[in-house]
Every structure is written in structure tokens, then in C-alpha cells.
Design a protein around this nucleic acid. Structure first.
Lengths: 138, 138
DNA sequence: CTGTATCCTTAGGGATACTG
DNA sequence: CAGTATCCCTAAGGATACAG
């Protein structure tokens, strides 16, 4: 059972994300869904960090409750389920990219796949375009 | 006592930040130091979220061990200590700004101070300049 | 394949008294 | 002022067996 009533220690935006992502596992699921092409329970379960079945199920449900991911049945197999991001979930991309960039810069042991960094540069370019476009409007 | 030997579940950059920030308190200290002008133990202690003394002390030590913050004695008062960011700590700014932006967009109850958002826009503009400058180099 | 249920252990954390 | 030291308790999480 998932508790809907969260403590809500404050109305700070930093604290707000901690209420959802302030644990050791949730962000890894987001990573797998965002960067590793994983979509199913079994795929998430097979990650390097060895999450256990009950924790994974609880986190998936929580992310669904928070409307960060959605669950649907696979088109070909009705007993298989696929998870995907909502738009709210997709909006986590800039955060994930900045986290990746920070780790790549400050931890030599971190193994950052090249596609991470190229994706990051692409996103920053897109950001630049968005801002330029916005400036044109003014 | 702080354990130096971390589990290090994987070499993933997302997992790397979780080893340091994957709890409910650490990021709040970063926030107070970065956005609220707090520098001392007593100031951190007085935050809305009511961190307890032992937890705060442990987290400050941990951030120091990870070379994200530094501790020095106050110039005027030798029994007072001031915490400040290392360059590694300052590099957390883009992450913090993106987190703030995400919360501001997706949570109506979040109370985001205006200075947060203006600071965010400034940082994005600076980022744009950096990219343009970099493009000129090529 | 996608989870539940259960057991059990440990780590995280609140409260509070105390110290240099 | 800036922490330590304890006590205690709950929640988080690992392992594993089982189920639709």
C-alpha cells in the first residue's frame, strides 16, 4: 500500500523533488526509462544495481501516482506491460542531463556513455534555440 | 563516525550523485548555502524542515569529505565556523536551477521565490553566451 | 512475465541531554 | 555557538517464496 499523504515538510521546490526522488532507487528507474530504452518490469529488474522486486514495484507505483510515468499493456502481448513517461516525466530531462554532466566532470570513476554527453549537448543547443526564439518574440 | 567505504553499486553517473545526495536532507543544506545565504551550523539548523542536530552534523561532515563544501573559522570570531562551496559544489548550480524550474512548473503548491526564477533565467542566458562563444571558436 | 506477500535486518532519523 | 552522545523507533530495503 502506498501512502498518499506525504509529510510535506515545506513548500520549497527543492524539498518538493526530494519528496519523490529523495531515495536511492527512484532516479535509477527514471534513468533506465530515459536513457537505456527499458520499458518493462523485467528490464528494470535487470539493472546493475540489483533492485529487489518489492522495491521496484513500490517505486513504479509511486511514479505512476505522481504522474511521472504511465503504464499500458503491450500491443502484441496483453500480459506484458510497458512503462513510459508522461510530459511531466519528460521534463525531467534537463535535470538528468545536468546531473550526468556534473558526475562526468567530478568523478573520474564514473563511466559516462558517450551518447549521454552528445545528448546533453543536443539538449543545450535546443535550449539555446528556444531562448533565441523567445528573445525574437520580445 | 562516517563511513568512507561506500557500496558503489555501479559506475553510472546518476548513481554517483545518489551516493551523495540520495537522502532527504543533503540537498536542503546545499539549497540553504546556495540560495538562502546561510553559512553557519546554527543557520542551517533553523530551516523550515527542522533537521535535527546529529543529522545536520553528519551531513556537513559528509559534504566536506566529498569536497563539496569547506569549513573555515569566521574572521571575526574564532569559535564560529563558516561553510562555503568548493568549485565542485558551485558546479551544482545548474542542477539546482533545473530542479527548481521543474518544481515550479509541475507543482502548484510549491512556493518558488522570485529570485530563484530570475537567477535561473540569468544562468540560462549565461549558458547561451558560453555556447555561442564556443561556437565562435570552431 | 509481472508482480505480492512475508520475514527479517539495518540504516535513517527524531528527541533530547550534554559538552568544549 | 557548534556540535556529541544516547536512546529509541520507524521506515527502508534485502532475500526469497509464492501467485495470477
Amino acid at each position: 500500500m502506498i501512502k498518499n499523504s506525504q509529510a510535506c515538510r515545506s513548500n520549497c521546490p527543492i524539498n518538493f523533488v526530494l519528496e519523490t526522488f529523495g531515495d536511492k532507487w527512484t532516479l535509477l528507474i527514471v534513468r533506465d526509462l530515459m536513457f537505456k530504452g527499458k520499458q518493462s518490469y523485467g528490464e528494470f529488474l535487470a539493472s546493475d544495481e540489483k533492485i529487489s522486486t518489492n522495491i521496484l514495484a513500490e517505486r513504479l507505483k509511486r511514479l505512476e501516482d505522481h504522474e511521472i510515468i504511465e503504464k499500458r499493456t503491450a500491443p502484441d502481448n496483453r500480459s506484458k506491460f510497458l512503462y513510459s513517461f508522461t510530459s511531466k516525466g519528460k521534463d525531467l530531462l534537463p535535470i538528468m542531463l545536468e546531473i550526468t554532466a556534473w558526475s562526468a566532470k567530478h568523478d573520474a570513476t564514473t563511466n559516462t556513455p558517450p551518447e549521454f554527453l552528445s545528448m546533453f549537448e543536443n539538449a543545450r543547443e535546443q535550449l539555446m534555440k528556444d531562448i533565441l526564439h523567445q528573445l525574437d518574440q520580445d
